[in-house]
Every structure is written in structure tokens, then in C-alpha cells.
């Protein structure tokens, strides 16, 4: 069954371009979709952070040229698990291979960047990566504390 809802509901897919200003649209979409699918505030926070970090990484590091590229996002909710799928045509990049930054005890020793992948690792429950043709496929998985609903009005009594 498709999660796409024809009745004026937030679509389960979003395509953005490789411009950092698009992050605002990604976050608005995540929030609207989550609200319609009964996500908890905590799930929305995790989804917001992970989608922001993953798309930021692609935009900032994924492309060798300065041309416009499309990044496709999809949310897929099945029972107690939510998958955020992200596809891009940037250079091959498996974020799972990136190590967390070394913890620093002093400001002098601290590195300035490199926190994004660590955020995804800690705020999600798992991830898969694949490369097919010229595209990266990253799926970030979140376990849900209660099953999602499809955006339909909830019935208080189900018999």
C-alpha cells in the first residue's frame, strides 16, 4: 500500500536541489508529514536532525561541479519502523565509513567540523547504504514507540 495520500495530505516524497536554502523546505516537509502520520515529538526531532545532516552533507560535499542537482527524499512508515530514504547523484559516499570525531578535552584540540555523520549515527536506529549506477541510496531507520497511522482520521473505537 502506498503511503502517498491523494486527499490533500503531505506527500511522502520530496525533491530538493543542492542549495542549502532547501534545508528549510526539508524541515517543513518532515514536520508536516510527521504530524499527519502521528509521529511523537521525539521522532520528529530525530527525523529533523537526521534529514538536515544527511542533506547538508550531500549539498556541501557531494558534488564536484557547480551544476544544479536533485536530491530525492522519501518517508516510508511500516508498523513500528520509519525509513527515511535519500537518493542523490553526487560522488559515491558511504557515511557509515566515517568515524566519529575524536573527543577533545580542550578548545585548542577541538576540531571545528565533522559532527554531522555522528548526529545521524546517534539519533537514528540504523542505516543502509548502496550505490547503483551514479546514485547514492541512503536509508536511515527509526524505531517507533507505537505504530504509525496512514494519515487518515483516527477512529477512537475499532471493532
Amino acid at each position: 500500500m502506498s503511503e502517498d495520500a491523494p486527499n490533500g495530505q503531505e506527500p511522502s516524497e520530496l525533491v530538493v536541489t543542492n542549495d542549502l536554502s532547501e534545508l528549510t523546505r526539508v524541515s517543513a516537509w518532515v514536520h508536516a508529514w510527521s504530524q499527519q502520520h502521528g509521529m511523537t515529538d521525539r521522532t520528529v526531532e530525530r527525523l529533523d536532525l537526521c534529514s538536515t545532516e544527511a542533506v547538508t552533507n550531500i549539498i556541501m560535499h557531494g558534488y564536484a561541479d557547480s551544476a544544479a542537482h536533485e536530491i530525492a527524499l522519501r518517508l516510508d512508515c511500516r508498523h513500528d519502523s520509519l525509513a527515511l530514504e535519500i537518493q542523490d547523484d553526487g560522488g559515491a559516499f558511504d557515511p557509515r565509513q566515517v568515524n566519529d570525531p575524536q573527543p577533545a578535552a580542550t578548545l585548542e584540540d577541538a576540531q571545528v567540523g565533522g559532527w554531522g555523520v555522528q548526529m545521524i549515527r546517534r539519533f537514528s536506529d540504523g542505516w543502509h547504504y548502496g550505490r547503483s549506477g551514479d546514485r547514492n541510496h541512503l536509508t536511515i531507520v527509526f524505531r517507533l514507540s507505537h505504530p504509525c497511522h496512514g494519515g487518515q482520521p483516527r477512529h477512537h473505537v475499532v471493532e
Partner: peptide, 9 residues
């Protein structure tokens, strides 16, 4: 987000 951490650090 991490980009904000970068600015703080």
C-alpha cells in the same frame, strides 16, 4: 545542527 556547532566552536 552540526553546521551550527561548527560556528560555535
Amino acid at each position: 545542527a552540526s553546521i551550527g556547532i561548527r560556528t560555535l566552536v
